[in-house]
Design a binder for these strands. Structure first.
Length: 222
DNA sequence: CCAGACGTTGTT
DNA sequence: GTCTGG
DNA sequence: CCAGACGTTGTT
DNA sequence: GTCTGG
């Protein structure tokens, strides 16, 4: 999954890297972006490529916003499939966090090449605002030791194909919704302080020694 | 027409 | 809310 | 996603 | 445990 991420850097540079021609004022820095917050998304239309604000997560009648959609089902589920066809977007990020289930140790992931990440997303209009969700897939080798899902990260050569405003068949979409190649990402353990969204500082992405687990501190004798 | 399900994640 | 199933 | 709260009544 | 808030 992808449930917390980072957005840093100068908006002008990010806009340039993404090929965005306007809307870059919607880029705001945060080291702790959570579902429900407003995030900049990137869309193409006949006039060009634009950055716009959207609430992260599709509101649902059940509990909690749908802030991820599975690549395996996004083309068939009623909540997502029509938006996949015509409302595709990028959700730009600098990196993202994942928690290792075994010990709740958080890790920060970013691209090895330091470029901005572009998550594959879909969006919808709800009243006077937009909502967006990030598509997830199976983990590549960079991720699999930490988590069993990862966000779909599109390389820049695929952005135009994904953002093409014309309807895309689900077969075409599915061909883009795959794990990024092994070696795309790097990672390191970070402070558990990232868990609380009250914390939002550069220190959240600094490497820490993983906190020993209770079992390591107090091993059970066999 | 109404009834009932609807999404992801993690956990064990 | 909106979609599917019956 | 994680953290943190989680209830009602009446009264002031 | 389950829900809300951020």
């Amino acid at each position: 999954m992808c449930g917390r991420f980072v957005r840093k850097g100068e908006s002008k540079k990010v806009a340039e890297a993404l090929g965005v021609q306007d809307g870059e004022e919607n880029w705001t820095e945060s080291y702790n972006v959570a579902p429900g917050s407003t995030v900049p998304i990137v869309r193409d239309d006949p006039t060009g490529r634009h950055m716009a604000p959207a609430v992260w997560g599709f509101t649902s009648s059940g509990r909690g916003p749908l802030f991820n959609a599975r690549a395996e089902t996004v083309d068939s589920l009623p909540s997502f499939r029509d938006h996949l066809r015509v409302n595709r977007c990028l959700v730009p990020a600098s990196g993202f966090y994942e928690w290792r289930p075994s010990d709740r140790q958080p890790f920060y992931f970013e691209r090895v090449d330091g470029l901005p990440l572009a998550f594959a997303g879909i969006w919808k209009r709800v009243g006077d605002h937009l909502e967006a969700t990030v598509i997830t897939t199976t983990p590549n080798r960079d991720m699999s030791a930490i988590h069993d899902r990862m966000p779909v990260i599109l390389s820049s050569d695929r952005w135009s194909n994904w953002l093409n405003p014309d309807p895309l068949s689900s077969a075409e979409s599915q061909s883009l919704l795959c794990p990024s190649p092994d070696g795309t990402l790097t990672r390191w353990p970070v402070s558990r302080a990232v868990g609380s969204i009250r914390n939002d500082t550069q220190g959240l992405i600094e490497r820490v020694e993983p906190q020993p687990t209770a079992q390591e501190l107090f091993p059970m004798s066999s």
